[in-house]
Structure formats: structure tokens, C-alpha cells
């Protein structure tokens, strides 16, 4: 079975600055991969490239065997149209550090926007599914509320439900708890743990080392735009083999 997400020799430049240096990463179905590393190491950039919010300058990214953003014609990659790229993005859910819920839509409408208006699935089915998702994140009572009426933790749980409502093949989390007050971090992490248990394929950029250790199947350490080391939580966090990983872990713990 092919991996759900496959990045091969990915290069990304911002002007002359190289933000991703030859990054290769493969995530299997049902796998939970946590990415850690110092600030500015390219973690967000990698997720943004995988979700096609940024274009890449070299290498290939494939989602479930389908090349992202390009059509292969012989040995050349031809960029896809905006519409085709948008269709591919439906397979990749994204949860942002600052939630990015649509403030002019109620919680339920936030969940329905994608499946009903973009994917054009039957409204009644979507509504039932959305309510089930809200129950899963513990927010049934907030269906009619607007995002600005919710706490940060509740907003992030809605954002996770919104991503799930698209039935994505993989969900990418970019520091989902970094914008939260400390007492609200737990409720978001517990939703993510439940999601991981349910078999969702996830890539999580996070500074929550304890979460990585408990939930991750694999931990990836990035620094300076490159993947420096990858391994089990045991090898990466509990007893880091690589000296750079070891000094990072001891600094954040």
C-alpha cells in the first residue's frame, strides 16, 4: 500500500533563502508523525507545502499516490489549474495555530461550508455528520454559536471538526495548542489523542513533547530547513541518540 503522504527531495525557497533543503518524508495510513525542532527550522513551511498553501521549487509531494499541484507528462511536471489544486486540497485537512474559523459563520456553518458548498454532498447527510463530529469534540451545544463566542480551546476543537468534515485522507496540525491559554491545551490534545486512536493519519508540528511521546508513532526533528533525525518516540525523546536532538529535548523539557 502506498503511503498517504510522500515528500521526496522537496526544496523550497523564499527569494534566495532556502526554507526546505532536500526534505524527504513518508507517512503511512493511520500513522501519527510529530515534527519538532527549533523556531524557523521549516516545520510550518513543510506543512504548508504539503497542503499546497505554498508551491515547492524542487522535488515532489504526493498525497495517496497522486502528485500534488502538478500533472506528470513524461519527465515534466505541468502545474495544475487553481480549480484542480483546490480539488486536491480537499484530501488534506489543515488545523492552524490561530484556528482561522470563519467568524461570520456559525459553528455548524463552519463545518458545512466545505462538504455542502464545495464538495456538494447532500446537505442533510452533511448536517447529520457535522453534528456527530461536534459531539465527538464535545461541542454539540455550541452548534449555533459564532466562533467569537467560544474560548480558544473550543475554537480549535471546532477547527478540528471542520477539517474532519471534509473526510480528508490526512490532517496536518501546525502548533494547534500554541495560541491557547495553558488550561485549555489539554482539551485540544485529548481530542487529538482520540483522533489518533481512531486511526486518522496525522502530521503534528508541536512543542508538546509529552504529547509526542505518548501519541506519535514516529518523531521527526527538523533544523535549518532539513530533517536531521527521525525515529520512535523512545529513540528521539526518551533516549535521544542524535546530539542535536538531545540538546533540543533537554532545552524544552
Amino acid at each position: 500500500m502506498s503511503p498517504i503522504l510522500q515528500a521526496v527531495h522537496v526544496q523550497k525557497y523564499y527569494g534566495a533563502f532556502q526554507a526546505l533543503k532536500d526534505v524527504s518524508l513518508s507517512v503511512d495510513r493511520g500513522e501519527v508523525v510529530c515534527i519538532i525542532g527549533p523556531s524557523g527550522s521549516g516545520k510550518s513551511t513543510l506543512l504548508r507545502c504539503a497542503s499546497q498553501l505554498e508551491s515547492i521549487d524542487g522535488g515532489v509531494i504526493a498525497v495517496d499516490g497522486e502528485i500534488a499541484g502538478f500533472r506528470r507528462s513524461g519527465d515534466t511536471l505541468v502545474p495544475l489549474s487553481d480549480g484542480q489544486t483546490a480539488r486536491q486540497r480537499q484530501n488534506v485537512g489543515m488545523v492552524f495555530q490561530r484556528f482561522n474559523l470563519f467568524p461570520h459563520r456559525s459553528v455548524l456553518e463552519n463545518l458545512l461550508e466545505g462538504p455542502v458548498r464545495v464538495q456538494k454532498r447532500p446537505a442533510e447527510d452533511c448536517r447529520r455528520e457535522a453534528m456527530a463530529l461536534l459531539e465527538r469534540v464535545g461541542l454539540t451545544a455550541k452548534a449555533a454559536s459564532y466562533p467569537n463566542e467560544l474560548s480558544g480551546g473550543q475554537q480549535q476543537r471546532v477547527a478540528i471538526a471542520r477539517a474532519l468534515a471534509m473526510r480528508p485522507k490526512i490532517i496536518l496540525f501546525d502548533e494547534p495548542t500554541s495560541a491557547l491559554d495553558p488550561e485549555l491545551v489539554g482539551e485540544v490534545l485529548s481530542v487529538m489523542k482520540e483522533l489518533a486512536k481512531s486511526g486518522m493519519t496525522m502530521v503534528v508540528v508541536t512543542h508538546e513533547i509529552a504529547f509526542c511521546r505518548e501519541v506519535a508513532d514516529r518523531v521527526v526533528f527538523m533544523d535549518g530547513g532539513a530533517i536531521i533525525a527521525t525515529g520512535s518516540p523512545e529513540d528521539m525523546i526518551v533516549r535521544p541518540q542524535n546530539p542535536r536532538v538531545a540538546s533540543f529535548i533537554s532545552a524544552v523539557l
Binding site: R105, G138, K142, Y146, N148, E149, L150, G153, E187, V188
Partner: peptide
């Protein structure tokens, strides 16, 4: 719409992750 004063909603009313069960 949706820009009502967020401050009016007491945080304490938030239903926590208890619904998730012990994870």
C-alpha cells in the same frame, strides 16, 4: 453577524473535554 461582543460570553460556561471520555 458573528462579531457580537465575545467578552459577553463567560468562559466558565464552556463545556470541557469531558465529553471526550478519559483519553
Amino acid at each position: 453577524k458573528g462579531w457580537g461582543r465575545a467578552a459577553d460570553v463567560p468562559k466558565a460556561l464552556s463545556d470541557g473535554p469531558a465529553a471526550m471520555g478519559a483519553a
